[in-house]
Design a protein around this nucleic acid. Structure first.
Length: 263
DNA sequence: ATGGTCGGTCGCCGA
């Protein structure tokens, strides 16, 4: 079984590339973030034609998450229990969708960006991660054998080597101690990084800013992760980052991250 | 080539 996560940065503008990713990697499940459309705007037909079911959650042009599966798509959950809202008045955003696919409980997660240190969005990001940690820890406590994947755009570079230049990120989000602690808390709750052991750094990234020729200059960040419970981690036989997908006209600014599981 | 981002949407926001 092969599962991938990808911040697609608009599924409508990249549906052909999405089908290409599914086929190229022979994916069973693809978790998308930043679909940037309402459910009624989601281009489902090309995916159905390729043999996949789709569960999507999009409220407007912002955020949006989806799960694409050819191994079943059951018990779809929109948002996770206790997921914080944002704004005035507070609104639940389209940042999390879960489903059971081929016996694995998968979550497509789009962690809030944080914008700037001290911004309300930054506090929202930390709260969102804390709530996610709490609920995910509960799932594992309820069933130590649970096979759960928490994957998506975490908007955090957990290690110094996960950014191209720490000096550049001085005073910026994604690398601060509280953000890293929030990410580490999920790991400490029992959710291991499934990908890093197969894609060691430094210089291994999943995201490159569109501006300043970041990609050809290899100025990226590792901020997209697939974490998994012990029972799930024990099944991983390989993982990779599809850097090729970042190339060429019409690429997302994120690369797909792929995990292969033993049957 | 002395500058060089996208997408959604149409004056900007968000990333």
């Amino acid at each position: 079984m092969r599962i991938a996560t990808w911040n697609v940065n608009s599924i409508r503008s990249r549906i052909d590339r999405a089908v290409g990713v599914l086929e190229r990697h022979d994916l069973d499940v693809l978790l998308l973030q930043e679909t940037k459309c309402r459910d009624d705007q989601f281009p489902e037909m090309p995916l159905s034609a390729a043999g996949y079911e789709v569960a999507m959650h999009g409220l407007n042009q912002w955020n949006g998450v989806a799960i694409i599966s050819r191994v079943g798509l059951e018990d779809v959950t929109i948002g996770f229990p206790g997921m914080p809202s944002y704004g005035e008045p507070p609104v639940a955003e389209a940042r999390a969708i879960g489903a059971t696919c081929g016996g694995v409980r998968v979550w497509s997660l789009y962690v809030p960006n944080g914008r700037e240190i001290g911004h309300a969005h930054y506090a929202y990001k930390l709260d969102w991660l804390t709530r996610l940690r709490d609920v995910a820890a509960g799932w594992l406590a309820d069933d130590p054998q649970a096979q759960v994947v928490l994957a998506g755009d975490w908007n955090i570079a957990p290690l110094d080597e996960d950014v191209w230049d720490m000096a550049f990120f001085e005073g910026k989000t994604h690398v601060t101690d509280p953000e890293r602690a929030a990410f580490r808390a999920v790991v400490d709750a029992g959710y291991a990084d499934l990908v890093r052991p197969y894609t060691p750094g430094p210089g291994t990234y999943t995201y490159w800013d569109y501006t300043q020729l970041s990609f050809p200059k290899r100025r990226g960040m590792r901020i997209d992760f697939a974490l998994g419970t012990p029972a799930l981690a024990a099944r991983v036989t390989d993982a990779s980052i599809d850097r090729e997908e970042r190339k060429g006209k019409g690429a997302s600014d994120h690369a797909p991250v792929i995990v292969t599981l033993a049957d």
